[in-house]
Design a protein around this nucleic acid. Sequence first.
DNA 1: TTAAGTAAGATTGTTAACAAAAATAAAGAA
DNA 2: TTCTTTATTTTTGTTAACAATCTTACTTAA
Lengths: 226, 226
Amino acid sequence: MTEAPENRIEDAILDAIAEQRLPAGTKLGEQVLSELFDCNRANVRRALASLAGQHIVELRPNRGAFVVTPTPQEARDIFQARRAIERTIAREAAKHATVEDIRKLREIIEEEAQARATARKPLELRLSRQFHIQLAKIAGNHVLERFLAELTMRSTLILGLYSSGGASQCSEDEHTEIVNALEKGDAEALSHLIDEHLQHLEADLSFDRPKQIGFGLAQALVSPSY
Amino acid sequence: MTEAPENRIEDAILDAIAEQRLPAGTKLGEQVLSELFDCNRANVRRALASLAGQHIVELRPNRGAFVVTPTPQEARDIFQARRAIERTIAREAAKHATVEDIRKLREIIEEEAQARATARKPLELRLSRQFHIQLAKIAGNHVLERFLAELTMRSTLILGLYSSGGASQCSEDEHTEIVNALEKGDAEALSHLIDEHLQHLEADLSFDRPKQIGFGLAQALVSPSY
DNA sequence: TTAAGTAAGATTGTTAACAAAAATAAAGAA
DNA sequence: TTCTTTATTTTTGTTAACAATCTTACTTAA
């Protein structure tokens, strides 16, 4: 069975945001999307309504749908929410992690390192996000996993707007420390490491000058940059 | 300016769920809703898609939209998520609470007591939920507030399905204790009280025999029970 | 040159008709 | 009766045409 068109659209938009092919503020025109995904406007509108319900997309009446552009205040709220959620994810992951889970996390870190070494920033970002999502899957709480999926998606948009670029190597090293703590099963240390990791990510932001603000093309939706 | 029809529909459905007029599993037929809110089906579908994005409604292809029925596992995930989120809300609320905030919370508790005294369970439930939402507003984090709004909504459905009925008086007393700790500005005590309060709520559930499962009428949407 | 106003084009919003699928009711066989 | 099959009805899904709104380009006047 092939996937429903509105889900294909939704997933494609989410994937594109996760890899920074779709920057904050990009207009998501109905006709463009319906042609791109070969379906009618009704399905496009359904996908956009669902994304609006998840605060990934903003619907402006009579104007259309746009990728959200988080404000500095929203960025603070999002990182505070991530710390609340990921501390609990950390403690739960420590309870449930298997050797296979650990192996998979290290694999993601390895790919991250390679992406960074070859200067493939979008891939690196997707993998960094994947690392956090994977921890949530290990924790086994579907609700927290979904919340984190949304928050990391919006974090990617925030990084695109406000990142001052520094924290990349740092982030990777911290991921390694996190897996080590997980392997030891030290829930409290793990929780603390994750919390600090997120504080470091947030500290890397600078709200002086927003960088890329949405340009028009949704072509990025179908052509990955690597 | 009058509100857009899809928002009217969405809010009406959420209100009805918050007061247990719409139980888990209720079918939300498109024609019924479009007649009830005097709008076309397109608006109904948009509202339902948005609610589906918030996991309040489940869309089954070719079947229609239904109020979600949380499983016992989902109930556990939801309460764990609430504890993660509301602990942080508690600490933030302790930082920002004004005397006016305290007054308003006590007002809600008072109304709760009256609703309980006069055996108006749906109103009592709505107010109990309102208490937690109000704390989130005081904390001032819009993201956490929205997550909590969703979680308390689903908690109401869970109580409808699995509540063993006992925790009502207990819950009210704990709300009082919580406001007292907030007034003192004791963030850690407050966080701990909230955590215990949620554990008590969860402990009141019994997963033996689900009670009300969705019957058909969406008439409940427009006629409050008090 | 700049600004305001106007007209043309493009995009979103609304509506209705039709197609497809599922639920229901009815009829027949074991 | 009970189960299956078939026909009917209801509901969801799709499509296209039209209306309303916004955007853009152009013209005109200060």
